[in-house]
Design a protein around this nucleic acid. Sequence first.
DNA 1: CCAGTGATCAGG
DNA 2: CTGATCACTGGA
Length: 173
Amino acid sequence: MNRLTTEFFKQDAVIAAEKLLGKKLVRTWDDGSETSYKITETEAYLGEEDKACHASKGRTLRTEVMYSEGGKVYVYLIYGMYWMLNVVTGTENHPQAVLIRGIDNIIGSGKVGGELKMNKSFYGENLLTSCRIRIEDAPDETYFSTTPRIGIDYAGDEWKNKPWRFILPKSRN
DNA sequence: CCAGTGATCAGG
DNA sequence: CTGATCACTGGA
């Protein structure tokens, strides 16, 4: 299978989050071996107006990569312990990202970052060219559920209730 | 329910 | 510099 193209990553985060379900996340380790995971849970964060999106606070050192064209990695440390893996989507200057919450049977954004041994060096990594991490195409999933996003109570009703979390049923792992 | 843990950002 | 906050997890 081939890598997803720049056209895929240029889509809006809500579309990309849905379509990323079932795609193959491939991690190449330091010793050259590879592990392939199926993406099973995602969340979309869409633009400065989305109060739950980090970019709602504007352009900073941390959010900078979200302002670039889709196809890059956005990682950040949360609670001093967990590296959160996101995929930047959309076009330049339109900050968006898709959070990877689950791969195979590893459910939980913090656990995903741990499993993939994420760290700050992956910030801005290019998914189109990186030799450490890539996403390969796979048939679109048509059977999945949606719920509001997790852990964003601060965002206010309008944004916290958006059904922008996408989940594959466990039986399809 | 709640503690742990440290980068990041706004404000002096 | 200081202090608040945080897209979380695991254990009481």
